[in-house]
Amino acid sequence: MNSCPHAKNIIAYRLGLLNKGERQKFEAHLEQCSACQQEIRLESIIEQELATVSDPGQIEQYVLAAVRLRKCAAPRLSWLYIIRMGVYALAMITCALVFIPWLLEFPLANLFDIKINLNLPAQLYAFLEGFSSPFVILAIGLILIAASSIYSYIALRE
């Protein structure tokens, strides 16, 4: 800024922040003050540069192609998500119905005297008892989770 005491008003004047009286007073001063006239010129150069936007080049085709691709991929990913959640749910239900009751009865049941009664239908209980070992159930759950994760990873990479 120059040494003129009115120079501090230049930006406010350019922005229209001065009231009517202040503006008229400043404009009257501006006609006589070459230093402030120079400041006004400088401010207009700065404003011109601020208003200049750069051009990133041709991006239209790239953007449209990417949007098309993502729109196609989106439904696939949502199906993938549903399948994955289904597998996780299956694994969790398996653990909840079979593995956790077994775990609670042995060995934790001995330690804390925990008894649970799931009141499962006899047929379902008989079916679950058919598995020889809870570790088999756990292994099946883990395999399902691992398979689902691998499938998700491959699909996302595509």
Binding site: V53, S54, D55, V63
Partner: peptide, 18 residues
């Protein structure tokens, strides 16, 4: 409408890039 999308990019890309 992809034509409109393309025109919209052309209109706004300078501002966004800047």
């Amino acid at each position: 409408d992809e034509q409109a999308m393309s025109e919209l990019i052309t209109m706004l890309k300078g501002l966004i890039y800047t």
